[in-house]
Computed example of a mutant assay.
Amino acid sequence: MDVFHVVDQDGNKLSDVKVIDRIEQSLEVRSFGFRSLQRSVGVQAAAKHTCIELIGRNRPGLLSEVFAVLTDLKCNVVAAEVWTHNSRMASVVYITDEATGAPVDDPDQLAKIKRLLRYVLKGSRDKQSGRTAISMDVTHTERRLHQMMHADQECNTDEMGVEEESNISDMNKPLVTVENCTEKGYTVVNVRSKDRPKLLFDTVCTLTDMQYVVFHATVIAEGPEAYQEYFIRHMEGNPVSSQEEQRRLANCLEAAIARRTMEGIRLELCCEDRVGLLSDVTRIYRENGLSVISAEVCTRGSQAVNVFYVMDASGNQVQRQTIEAVRSEIGQTILHVKDDFGLKSPPQDSGRFSFGNVFRSRSEKFLCNLGLIRSGS
């Protein structure tokens, strides 16, 4: 028997009857049917969109280049989610045909989309080729992103011997220990981290994708921290067999928790949706030297509701004047700063040098080579 004590996103007692009913229905056995799956959070119906999966080395301006390619190919982005971790970027993007609003299913068009996006992902520095996949299947977006980044992490470790150092701050870095309980025949996993929404989901997804079965678990959230303890075995019934496997399990859990940690400034864009909106917005980010750490894009009726977490090109907090310049260009009534406590005040002597100009020229040269923009020379 599993018991969960839950609150809403504001930390209050759950009182919305519709939400409670939705939870109960989702937990019933019949909820695993196809029709219920389509209604789940993060799941996109295959009949309405074409799903594109992207993974490659992250760099400033990458998202802008991806959306510019899709706009040029007459594709409308109706939803997307982007995660970055350890200098890698993974994204699941849902598109429709600009003219018909239907899924893109022409084989030649799909091949062209895949070829150009792979070229964008590969860039000029990626030792591993960027990977692109296109499907019409039903996908749980967040679960799929975990699987993509887990597979990419394994590939990085196998090919380069060590995983790149995460840029997450030590304050937010999770602590994971893995030990065997010999007398009970279990492996005990303890996780201490900053509490946040979907923390339990991220942890359990990783254990499941690594082919472990959870027999007992305790999860406690006290103040800003959360404590998780799991008693696990392999699917065949054996505990973790070696110290190397213990380290691998701990590293994968740390990565799964860290890759969704929201660092940077949260920008919320809410406006009338249109074709090319994301291309324009991310281009403005790029031109002002902003790097997108994570993004969640969705369309509700005729409205685009998008959330971006951004930092500067060096991975530091953004200058306040930069954010204000971006808001002025996009529209102060439609682009809002959710939390501005991380904004830096401008220095006394800022000089004339601008990282934004550097990355603008590099990305524009790259897009010009693809034939997506005209050269100004």
Rank of each mutant, 00 (worst) to 15 (best):
V3Y: 12
V3C: 13
H5C: 07
Q9Y: 12
N12I: 11
L14H: 12
V17A: 14
K18T: 10
K18G: 11
I20H: 09
R22S: 09
S26T: 11
L27I: 12
V29F: 13
S31Q: 15
S31N: 05
S31R: 11
F34V: 15
S36E: 14
H49A: 09
E53W: 08
I55D: 08
G56V: 10
V66D: 04
V69S: 01
L70R: 07
L70A: 04
T71W: 00
D72N: 06
D72Q: 07
K74A: 15
K74L: 15
A79T: 00
T84G: 06
T84E: 02
S87W: 03
S91E: 02
V93Y: 02
T96R: 01
E98H: 15
E98M: 12
G101A: 11
P103T: 01
D108L: 10
K112V: 08
L116P: 10
G130S: 15
T132Y: 01
A133D: 15
A133E: 14
I134Y: 00
S135R: 06
M136S: 07
T139L: 01
E142H: 06
E142N: 11
L145S: 13
A151Q: 14
E163C: 15
E164G: 12
N167H: 06
I168F: 06
M171H: 14
N172E: 13
L175G: 05
C181L: 08
K184H: 05
K184P: 04
G185H: 10
T187K: 04
T187L: 07
D195I: 11
D195A: 15
R196H: 12
K198S: 14
L200R: 11
L200Y: 14
F201S: 06
D202W: 12
T203L: 15
V204P: 01
D209P: 14
Q211K: 13
I220Q: 15
E222N: 06
P224Q: 09
E225P: 11
E225A: 14
E236C: 00
N238S: 09
P239R: 03
Q243K: 11
E244M: 08
R247M: 10
L253G: 02
R259E: 00
R260T: 14
R260M: 13
E263A: 08
G264E: 05
G264H: 03
L267T: 13
E268P: 15
L269D: 08
C270A: 10
C271I: 00
D273C: 04
R274I: 03
L278R: 06
L278H: 02
V281I: 08
T282N: 04
I284W: 02
L290M: 12
V292K: 10
A295Q: 13
A295T: 11
E296H: 12
T299S: 10
G301E: 06
V305P: 12
Y309T: 04
V310L: 10
D312E: 03
D312G: 02
N316M: 01
N316L: 01
Q317M: 03
Q317K: 06
R320L: 03
T322R: 03
T322D: 04
I323D: 04
V326C: 13
R327F: 14
L335Q: 15
D340W: 10
L343K: 07
R352W: 08
G356T: 10
S361P: 00
L367D: 00
N369K: 03
L370W: 02
G371F: 05
G371H: 01
G371D: 06
I373D: 02
G376N: 06
